[in-house]
Computed example of a mutant assay.
Amino acid sequence: MKKILTALIVSATAFGGVSAAYAADEVGPYAGVGVVSSKHKYSLSNDTSNGDRSSTEWSGKIFGGYQLNKNLAVEGGYTDFGSSDYNYTVGGANGHVDSKSHAFYLAGKGSVPINQQLSVFGKLGVAYNKNEVHGTGLATPYVTGDNNRTNLYASVGGEYALNEKVSLSLEYEHYGKNGIDQGRKKGAVSLGARYNF
């Protein structure tokens, strides 16, 4: 994880240097990448195993948008939530379940500058989620499948401008529930680096 964060920060500073910073108020397009942390959990009826049913998975996202003014933007992105798996026991029989999920989102973004470098923001829009769950054993018919679902997308976070072109952000994103309630849960935390063109 430290290597990913270091690479993200080094890449951001390589694009723009660490000169005097300015909050993004230029009209125009932007693009970015991020590191995503999401919770995965499995809940199977009559499971008698003592395994760890929840985990935190690390993955990534890409996003882009158009800054309309210093307060408003339109943004879209793709988030990969990674994959996870779980070994269970039901009725004395062992089984295995795994999931892989990702989402696309489109949202309006509102920002409020705190000072020349720091701003807080919120995003509201829609997310198209895909969750694939596969498994073996007695619980397989009840917990597996391939499901797509459109949900409300919302996020809150903060953004720190390194200079006129590059900024870093930290946010909590809500993508909504999956149609199959195994694997990825509805929220994620992401650290992103953005470049203004």
Rank of each mutant, 00 (worst) to 15 (best):
E132V: 05
R149S: 04
K100V: 04
I9R: 03
G179P: 02
A127H: 13
Y142D: 15
E164I: 08
Y105R: 03
A20M: 12
Y105E: 06
A154E: 07
P113Q: 07
V133L: 00
E159Q: 15
V18D: 13
E171R: 15
V126R: 08
L68M: 05
Y195M: 12
L118H: 01
L44F: 07
E173D: 11
T150L: 05
V36L: 10
N69I: 00
L118D: 03
Y172D: 13
K130H: 15
S119A: 10
K41Q: 13
Y88T: 00
V36T: 14
Y160H: 04
K123V: 00
S43M: 02
I114Q: 12
G64V: 11
T136F: 03
V189G: 05
V143K: 06
F121D: 01
I62W: 01
H134L: 09
G110H: 01
S84D: 12
K130G: 08
Y78G: 04
K186P: 02
S59N: 14
H96T: 10
A21N: 07
G77L: 06
I4N: 13
V35A: 10
S59C: 02
T89A: 04
D80P: 00
V36W: 02
E173R: 06
L191D: 12
A24W: 09
S101H: 03
N178Y: 02
Y30Q: 03
L124I: 14
S119V: 01
L170D: 01
S49G: 06
V166F: 05
F197T: 07
L124F: 15
A193L: 10
V189Q: 07
D80F: 10
I9N: 04
N50H: 12
Q67P: 00
K177V: 04
I62F: 04
D52P: 03
A21C: 08
S99T: 05
S43K: 11
K130S: 13
K61V: 01
L118G: 01
L8K: 10
G176A: 09
K185T: 11
S59H: 07
L162S: 00
K186V: 02
E173Y: 00
K70Q: 09
V18K: 15
V35M: 12
T6I: 10
L118E: 03
K186N: 12
K3G: 14
H102M: 09
Y22P: 07
T79C: 05
L118W: 12
V10C: 11
A193P: 02
F81N: 04
R149I: 00
T56Y: 13
L152V: 15
A93Y: 09
G91S: 07
G122D: 05
Y42W: 04
Y66A: 00
E57A: 07
T48Y: 13
G108L: 13
Y172G: 14
F121E: 01
G91T: 09
K70L: 06
A31N: 03
F121Y: 15
G125V: 08
D98R: 07
G108H: 08
S190C: 10
H174K: 13
L5D: 08
L124S: 05
A21G: 14
G34M: 13
A31F: 14
T79K: 06
Q117S: 13
H102P: 12
V33S: 05
S37W: 15
F15G: 12
S59D: 13
D80L: 08
Y195D: 14
F197Y: 14
G64W: 12
V35W: 11
Y88E: 01
T144E: 01
G157C: 03
Y30H: 06
G34I: 10
V36C: 07
V90W: 08
